[in-house]
Amino acid sequence: MRLRLVPDQTNINFFRAARITFGASVVAMIASVIVFFAMGLNYGIDFTGGTTIRTDSPTAVDVGEYRAALTPLELGDVAVTQVFDPSFDADQHVASVRIQTQEGQEAITQSTISRVQAALQAVDPEITFTSVESVGPKVSGELVLTAVLAVGGALAAICFYIWLRFEWQFAMGALAALLHDVVITIGVFSLLQIRFDLAIIAALLTIVGYSINDTVVVFDRARENLRKFKTMPLIDVLNLSANETLSRTVMTSGTTLIALIALLVLGGDVIRGFVFAITFGIVIGTYSSIYVAKNIVLMLGVKRDWSKEAGSKVKGKYADIDA
């Protein structure tokens, strides 16, 4: 007996609840923007500069004691958080200490780090420092710029490609879906105050890559069906295409999610934020390619006089690729 996640023949009307789903997306995006401005992001040292020290000790961590030990050093804003993970040993107690960039220092001074380490060692002689990372304000400023450029550049490049290969309406639909995914993911990071660092930018770009992958598969089918059923209304063509590709969408998202959930649970705390972003993005990316991208295409309409040459050009381009 075969596993069938989706029945062979489906006829779901994805536009029936268009108002609700599309409205929900718009509301979620606005809410994300509000949350972002109200709460901000919990930026990591990649973007703010500063130092994080990861400690590891066989004795239990007392966050209050750590903080008390560091207060006399007058380092400004010091954050101590305990880290939990199922992959830790029973006698492994991990904490993360974060120190802001010191006033008037372009580069990192080793003496500050040494003082912090000495103070913590006084509290717990068995403590070890498994990682120490410092980023100066000069570099962090550039990293912000790079991150913005990366996300913006990726969106632009993708739109351009879609525009080349499809119609501009499809490019707009894809762009809307991608913005939707990125904005809401950032909103969730802001809401949950998960640390936002350079790796999360990589995750955002991965979401963009995955989401567009999903969207393109539906669009590709729509392009084909538009040629095949020249008189069918656009809404029906889009619905048919979504139904025909639904089984594939669910299957691919399913396998990717399975692999990611394994990584989320077992992959350790160091990359948990990163994996969480991608996992969340896959879910929302799948949603957006079904409910957002197509809605935009429907709103904008598509010119239907698909010329024969356009069709044969595509075919001619790939017909010779053969195993």
Binding site: R54, S87, E106, T128, T130, S134, L266, G268, V270
Partner: peptide, 19 residues
């Protein structure tokens, strides 16, 4: 020095194992 990071070998090994 604008940026410096030290990663302990144990932490790296833990990451490899978990991964």
């Amino acid at each position: 020095f604008l940026e410096e990071r030290t990663i302990g070998p144990e932490l790296g090994q833990d990451s490899i194992d978990a991964g």
